[in-house]
């Protein structure tokens, strides 16, 4: 399922611009057209009985924003605590029903452009493919899949 997204958002040079973030020990690439905003870590209010991926609710732009733990979503092992933790506000879910969701990451690194030939489709799910960035593997996320039950 990389392709529709990549096709729609691909640059003319046959690459995909992504926001590179670190979640635990993993580097994750969030397609830039699905990123709404990067903010310093939002204060969340936990919800009793919630799944472990849901950190809680935060206020963003006057609205309640569910915040998910990205490392937990991609099953990343715990990494270094250095850097500035951020909440990346993204559009998630199918395009027709997309909604804003916060993804808590350990660090927002940069805007990168991943060449399409470097992408490897892995499986159908949140992590739709992998690529190498400066010699390190990067997991490319398909945020449309996040709303799937």
């Amino acid at each position: 399922m990389l392709y529709p997204l990549l096709m729609t958002s691909a640059s003319g040079e046959g690459g995909i611009r992504c926001l590179l973030v670190r979640a635990g020990e993993y580097l994750c690439a969030l397609p830039l057209n699905q990123v709404r905003r990067v903010v310093a870590t939002l204060t969340t209010h936990p919800l009793p009985g919630a799944a472990p991926e849901l950190l809680g609710l935060a206020e963003f732009a006057g609205e309640a924003l569910p915040v998910l733990d990205l490392a937990c979503l991609v099953n990343a092992p715990a990494g270094a605590a250095s850097g500035q933790p951020v909440t990346v506000v993204v559009w998630a879910g199918p395009p027709a029903e997309r909604e804003l969701v916060g993804l808590a990451a350990d660090e927002a690194l940069a805007i990168v452009e991943l060449p399409l030939h470097a992408l490897t489709e892995t499986r159908l799910g949140l992590v739709s493919g992998e690529a190498l960035q400066a010699g390190r593997p990067v997991r490319v996320l398909n945020l449309e899949h996040l709303g799937a039950t």
Partner: peptide, 14 residues
């Protein structure tokens, strides 16, 4: 903050 701001600027630019 500048870093985040630049990222957000890049997002807006995109």
């Amino acid at each position: 903050e500048t870093h985040i701001l630049s990222l957000n600027a890049a997002i807006e630019a995109a």
